[in-house]
Design a protein around this nucleic acid. Sequence first.
DNA 1: CGGTCATATGTAGCTCAGCTACATGTTGCC
DNA 2: GGCAACATGTAGCTGAGCTACATATGACCG
Lengths: 112, 112
Amino acid sequence: MKADALRGHLDPMILAVVEHEPLHGYAIMEALLERSGGELDLPTGTLYPALRRLERAGYLASEWSTVGGRKRRTYQLTSAGQKMLATGKSEWDAFRAVVEGVLRPRGASGQA
Amino acid sequence: MKADALRGHLDPMILAVVEHEPLHGYAIMEALLERSGGELDLPTGTLYPALRRLERAGYLASEWSTVGGRKRRTYQLTSAGQKMLATGKSEWDAFRAVVEGVLRPRGASGQA
DNA sequence: CGGTCATATGTAGCTCAGCTACATGTTGCC
DNA sequence: GGCAACATGTAGCTGAGCTACATATGACCG
């Protein structure tokens, strides 16, 4: 998958992954990989800054813990994050409709 | 629509618009606007550089003409452009599947 | 005849998200 | 000892789409 394609779509995807259960960064990476059927393999240089961005924006809240000697920073969705996720989903639907309307127009005046 | 969302998806959309008939820049803008139901209103600072980029890449070929005293640069799809459009469409399908798999997972192990 | 809108094309410069590459440390296995 | 998986993070680059600006013609109105 091309890198640019993700632009602006990654944030809601991350929020969606922690919607029902808080997860730490590494687990979020694995969840994205699994939900995408192995397609979405984020580099750490993408994920961790994104998580900090989302926390700074108030959509995620984090908490440190130690499990088996390893430090984890666990993120959970805030209420603002829930709203943002809902917004993101409907924005995705709108975006998808736009792209498909252009890529595969049907009906009235689109076709030559 | 957020600006970032378009990243990496605009190119195939432009190619799709000139798939069946060559169009000049301004007409491409209008076609995108129409096919998207008024959602996709590109600034000229986005479209014209994009067209030049696509031409440089060999996906479009352009030709100047004058209609009613106004100069037009008309773009048509090259054979490389046709291939690129097909590639772009299937990449879009894959991307869409990834996003929706993450945003709205169903089945096996995704849900909490 | 002057103003303004639609038509038509273009450039300069900014922004910033996702990337590559690097840096650090633990646990577990061979 | 060494390597993989686990776990988190920063510095710096890239480039596409954006804002703002610049230019020019034709059409319509008063």
